[in-house]
Structure formats: C-alpha cells, structure tokens
Design a binder for these strands. Structure first.
Length: 277
DNA sequence: CTAGCTTCCTGATAGC
DNA sequence: TGCTATCAGGAAGCTA
C-alpha cells in the first residue's frame, strides 16, 4: 500500500515527466474517484491547464497548475499513477486519463477505487481533503520526542495504532509502522502510556530514519516504474518485518509472530520486541 | 473525547 | 475442479 515513501516515489517519478506539460483533455471512466467538484466541472476546468510542480503532504499528492489551482490526489489502498505513451496497453481498472498536449497520458488506475481526486481553484477553501488535519512531516523541526510524548504519552491505545493516526505524524501506514516498531524494539501492542521517555526518543529518531530509508530504496527509473514497479510502488525494499510471519528475525533468528491490533495485521519479533513491564 | 464497529472495493487465497 | 467465505487495509462515518 502506498505510504509516505511510496507517495514520495510517485511524485519523484511522475513529476519530472509532466512539469511544463499542458492538458489537452480529460477522460473519466469512473466517476467515483472524483470527489470535488462535480464530474462535468472537473474535466472542464482541468483542460487547458499546465503543470508547474508536484508536491506531497503525508500521503496526499498535489499537482500545481499554472493559474494557481491545485489538483489533489490520495491513492489510498491501490491507486496508481502512470505516464504512458498514447498506445500503451490499457489496464483493466483505469478510471481517469489525462491527455497531455504531446500525446502522452497520465493514467489513474485503482483496483479497489478507494482513491480520490479533488480539484481546488486558487483561493478556494479546502474543506474537502482534510489535509489541514495532518500532523507534522517526520522531518519537521516540530517532530520531536517531546512532541510525541506530550501528544500520546497518556493514551491507552497501542502505539501501533497511534502511529497510523495521520494527525500525530503524517504518512505512516501498516507496513512502515511494523518496520519502525521493530527497529525501535517496541512491542506493537504496548500502550502509549506504558512507553518510557527513552522509547519516545527512539521513536522520534527511528520514524524519520525508516521513512527516509524507504524513499531511498524505492529509487528507480521511469522505465522501471512503467514496466511494473509502479504497481508495487517500491523497489524491493527488503522489509525486515512486514509479511514475515513465521520467518526468522533478522536480528536474533527467533520466529516472527503475527497478531491483529485495531483490525490491522502486525508482525513482530517476540524476543527483540518485548512488552514493557 | 474516545472506543469500537462498519463501509467502501476487488483479487488472492483458504477451505470444503 | 469449482464453489463460497475470508482477508487485505486507509480513512471516514457512525453509534454508544
């Protein structure tokens, strides 16, 4: 699933291919993925605009337009963006096709159709995307051990669940939360109120470290991306934890275990990640 | 305010 | 072999 590192990867791959390009037309094959404005307006308003830059906030992607408008996209579970030649084979779950003036296309593919587009005109108040509810990026100066401890230190919820709360820190999903807790040597079920000051310090350090590592290992060429990696969002990042139930821990060799926390599967090493007493 | 449950959606996989 | 049931999960919406 695309999390912060994968969304950043999409931005880095797609951005350079489309910046400066003008939109010739928009085809919408499935209206569910357009959240705002109304369908007819969406295609109409995009046509003729040119892309000036791309940015990312948490798991939200933004395309900035030459007139100050902004196209926002959240990929949710299975959303994919591809820049293709005109005659590139069409994938089954293609919902939006943005035609560029040079003939290439930006295609939005989403098997489960949870992803959403919003088009915001310059100065239009964003009451739609909830980006204003996002917490800091992991690299913000405000993202510190003290911030985490103050925000979460009294909560009874499992730390694993709270790492997914986008208002605490933007960008973490189920895969990277497992990786983060593993390198932090914290059991995913540990209640936030049971974590020590040193745990919060480790988390404040490991969260940006793991997400940066994700971005670095995802690095790939646009050709590799189009050839199939775009489907996985990541370039075999060698996950140490996620999906390794029953396999040996890369640190100690013990069998990795899997449990369900807040409805999400969680993998961890029962030896390296002990619960706090 | 929080906790817990449901919804959205399809494809992969498990079980019979 | 072929059917049905379950699971996967980001985030919002709902109830208590």
């Amino acid at each position: 699933m695309p999390e912060l590192p994968e969304v950043e990867t999409v931005k880095r791959i797609i951005g350079p291919q489309i910046i400066g390009q003008r939109i010739a037309g928009v085809e919408i094959c499935n209206n569910q993925v357009i959240a705002h404005p109304e369908l007819e307006q969406f295609a109409e308003i995009l046509s003729g605009r040119a892309f000036t830059s791309m940015s990312r906030q948490g798991k939200f992607l933004s395309f900035h337009m030459d007139n100050g408008d902004e196209l926002v996209l959240h990929l949710r579970m299975t959303g994919q963006l591809l820049v293709t030649p005109e005659d590139y084979p069409m994938e089954k779950h293609t919902h939006v096709i943005i035609h560029l003036e040079d003939g290439r296309q930006i295609r939005y593919i989403d098997v489960r159709r949870f992803g959403r587009f919003w088009y915001l005109q310059k100065d239009e108040a964003d009451t739609f995307t909830r980006r204003n509810k996002l917490g800091p990026e992991p690299w913000d100066t405000s993202f510190t051990a003290n911030y985490l401890q103050t925000k979460l230190g009294k909560k009874k919820k499992a730390i694993k669940e709270m790492l997914h709360d986008q208002s605490v820190v933007a960008g973490i999903g189920n895969i990277y939360s497992d990786e983060i807790l593993f390198v932090s040597e914290i059991h995913p079920e540990t209640r936030c109120c049971e974590l020590t000051e040193s745990d919060w310090q480790v988390l404040a350090e490991k969260i940006p470290e793991i997400l940066e590592w994700g971005i670095e290992t995802n690095a790939m060429s646009p050709e590799e991306y189009l050839a199939g990696k775009g489907k996985e969002y990541r370039n075999t990042p060698d996950l140490r934890v996620y999906g390794r139930e029953g396999k040996p821990c890369v640190n100690c060799g013990a069998d990795m275990e899997r449990i369900t926390i807040g409805g999400r599967s969680s993998c961890f090493c029962p030896v390296c990640q002990k619960k706090r007493e």
